[in-house]
């Protein structure tokens, strides 16, 4: 397992190198960080453009630019934004925001996906299965931005109207400045009120697809020989399903969930946008692509890719936990 992990990490480093080079090529060819200054009126003086070109290294050879970035990145320095702020400083803050947003969503989505997937498989073609299938496909089909807008408009509006006060919030992580005047309990409920809708939005949309994987895997397992053998040996149906069926059926879901979580760390872009959480997705779109800032895009890419790789490794380890045959191999 140790050497397996090392091999995976080495391969991942090569993937990261190749992807960073590819993204650097694309960004260097298409980004023009000076563009927004040409149309300013009055236009900045020539000295300004010269200074900015030098500062951003735009006069350097392409490979020299990439080497500068790479050699700094290896020491944990992702360079500066066009505005002169260290990308590394910004990335950790953004990552923390995204992490807080997705944590509960992932937990809820996984639990719901397993429950619904198992029930759907065990009670295949029963009304409950049809109901869950309908719900899952409905959620899969809903565009995220629309679902989020519905939550804001009707769930937040409805609950707040019902309570006659602000219970659920639609903007940001907390009411501005509440930490300066609120009691600890007020701050707690305020932040929870801000967390609910984005969590529900992410959880339900993730759960929908994951529950289908779980149902499918469970159906495969339920039809296998060892399940029949377990029943023939006298195990109860519940014990067979929980102990032998579910454990094996969790392996495919583990892969999907691990990849999903890794990707979510790159930013739940639309959810962040709609609920105004200033996380990784917004960082890529606004600060990176929106500002033609190559260092921001590459910093984002590297951190996001690290999480994808990391959660892939986590998935590999979980396979071993779930299936002793993998451990032995």
């Amino acid at each position: 397992m140790f050497f397996f992990t090392i091999r995976r990490i080495v391969a991942s480093v090569l993937v990261l190198l190749a992807s960073s080079f590819l993204v650097f090529v694309l960004c260097a060819a298409s980004f023009d960080p000076l563009a927004k200054y040409y149309s300013r009126n009055p236009q900045p003086p020539p000295e300004f453009f010269d200074q900015l070109r030098t500062q951003l290294g735009l006069d350097d050879n392409f490979f020299v630019r990439y080497w500068h970035w790479l050699s700094s990145a290896l020491t944990g320095d992702f360079g500066q934004t066009i505005g002169g702020t260290a990308v590394t400083d910004q990335l950790w803050g953004r990552l923390w925001v995204t992490g807080r947003m997705i944590f509960f969503a992932v937990v809820i989505a996984v639990v719901l996906a397993i429950l619904v997937g198992v029930v759907g498989a065990v009670r295949q073609y029963k009304p409950s299965d049809y109901a869950f299938t309908f719900l899952a496909y409905l959620l899969i089909a809903l565009p995220t931005f629309w679902f989020a807008a519905l939550l804001k408009e009707f769930v937040a509006g409805g609950i707040n109207d019902a309570f006659g006060r602000q219970v659920l919030y639609t903007l940001g992580e907390e009411s501005p400045g509440i930490s300066s005047y609120g009691t600890p309990s007020e701050i707690f409920w305020d932040r929870l009120g801000h967390l609910v809708l984005p969590t529900i939005c992410l959880a339900l949309l993730s759960f929908a697809a994951w529950s289908r994987f779980q149902r499918s895997a469970m159906l495969d397992v339920l039809g296998s020989d060892y399940m029949r053998l377990a029943r023939a040996k006298g195990l109860t149906y519940r014990r067979t399903v929980m102990k032998h069926g579910l454990r094996n059926a969790l392996i495919p879901l583990t892969t999907v969930v691990a990849l999903g979580i890794g990707t979510l760390f790159g930013g739940a872009i639309i959810t962040e946008q709609v609920f105004v959480w200033h996380g990784m997705g917004e960082y890529l779109l606004k600060n990176g692509i929106g500002q033609n800032d190559i260092n921001v895009v590459l910093g984002w890419l590297l951190i996001s890719a690290v999480f994808v790789v990391l959660f892939n490794l986590v998935a590999d380890v979980l396979y071993a936990v779930l299936d002793p045959r993998i451990r032995l191999a």
Partner: peptide, 26 residues
Amino acid sequence: GAMVLSACGGGSSDSGSSGGGSGRVI
């Protein structure tokens, strides 16, 4: 976890609102 995640946001602290009128507008 909920308590940690809810309580651990970046936050402003001192608002120092003396010397002016009353109320706040966002």
